[in-house]
Design a protein around this nucleic acid. Structure first.
Length: 254
DNA sequence: ATGTCGCCTCATAGGCGA
């Protein structure tokens, strides 16, 4: 079973790139983030053999899951808030695996309510992750975490020191997920590899110089770790004309 | 501070979010 995740930074703008990528790689499941609009081209993906579920809002955020196998929707919002107006969460079950697609808040700039919202969102996610561990169903939490877990996950720590993605509080919370028993699939298989990133800024030719960060992740519940075969970053789409600022990460399970 | 995208609107320029 192959599951990919890609922050597409507008599905309207990136639709053809996603279509081309699906035709070339044919994953069983694709998680997408930052759809950035109400419209979702489900017919395009149906034509490629994928059914889809999208959680959208105007202009911002938005997540979707494509799958070749039937999708059972469990929840379209993260528990813990009466009204969470952000489209950032989608929990489904596909082939007896719980698959959770997240677009975790960016949190910039630090010292604002946006940063507090990010920390609160992570605390709410932690609560859900704890509950999922107690269930029979194995769980994958994937997507854009907007967290640089360790120094090795960025080109130069000094240039991220004031960024919300690199602050101690979100990083501690991310480590908390691992302490709970979840496994960072990419890092588990590539423990010491430097320069492995999933995002590069549009400006200053960051991609050309490989000045990036690793913020798109797959976390596996303990039940799934034995099935982990590979987890790779596909840099190619980031090199295309008019790319997303993120590139896909691809997980393969037995 | 800046760079560059993509969205939106009291819209063809500027603000917001990333």
């Amino acid at each position: 079973m192959q599951i990919a995740s890609w922050n597409v930074n507008s599905i309207k703008t990136r639709r053809d790139q996603v279509k081309d990528w699906l035709e070339e790689h044919a994953p069983d499941v694709l998680l997408m983030q930052e759809l950035k609009g109400l419209e979702f081209p489900s017919e395009t993906f149906r034509g490629l053999g994928y059914e889809s579920i999208a959680v959208t809002q105007k202009a911002y955020n938005g997540v979707a899951i494509l799958s070749r196998s039937p999708i059972k929707v469990v929840s379209k919002s993260l528990a813990g808030l009466e009204v969470d107006s952000h489209a950032r969460f989608l929990e489904v079950i596909i082939k007896d695996v719980r698959i959770v697609n997240i677009y975790l808040p960016n949190g910039n700039p630090i010292g604002t309510e946006k940063f507090e919202y990010k920390l609160d969102w992570m605390d709410r996610l932690r609560g859900q992750m704890k509950r999922w561990l107690a269930s029979e169903i194995p769980t994958i939490v994937g997507g854009d975490f907007n967290v640089i877990p360790e120094d090795i996950d960025c080109h130069k720590p000094a240039s991220w020191i004031k960024d919300a993605l690199f602050q101690p509080e979100p990083r501690e919370r991310y480590r908390g997920f691992l302490d709970m028993g979840y496994v960072d699939a990419f890092r588990a298989l590539h423990p010491d590899e430097k320069g492995q990133f999933t995002f590069w800024d549009y400006f200053r030719q960051a991609f050309e110089h490989n000045r990036g960060i690793r913020i798109d992740h797959f976390l596996l519940s303990p039940k799934l770790v034995g099935r982990l075969q590979s987890c790779e970053i596909d840099k190619d789409p980031r090199g295309l004309p008019k790319p997303s600022d993120h590139t896909p990460i691809v997980l393969t399970l037995d």
